[in-house]
Amino acid sequence: MSLTALHISPTAFTPEVKFDPIAGKFEIKGRSIPENAHEFYNPLIDWVKTYSENAAESTSVDVYFDYLNTSSSKSLMHFFNALSTISGKEVSINWLHTKDDEAMKEAGEDFNTIVNLPFNIVATDSI
């Protein structure tokens, strides 16, 4: 089953999404503060479920947020859980945050504690 690349443009309340199923490069970037995050994330989770049936040898997911609400955090847990069902292949998450953003560093540490995937927290100068 072939899966086409997913690209969603950012809005004031939702992030940019770029999923490349061939290269196994996923990116979620920007602001995620919608009041009903599942409406935004459920299609991404469905996409990942299809992808997991025929995943690339290695999948790398870059995640960067400047704002993240708790509604989005819940949906992200579902998203990460969907990724963790990919078996026999490499999957890793890179949680990026700017150096001075304590809140996003802390959010990454929360996920690192409960997500069952290789999880790297990376401080950068700019995204």
Binding site: K74, M77, I114
Partner: peptide, 12 residues
């Protein structure tokens, strides 16, 4: 922190 992490994993 602990309560948040527990609630978040339960939410999942």
């Amino acid at each position: 922190r602990e309560m948040y992490q527990t609630s978040l994993s339960e939410a999942a």
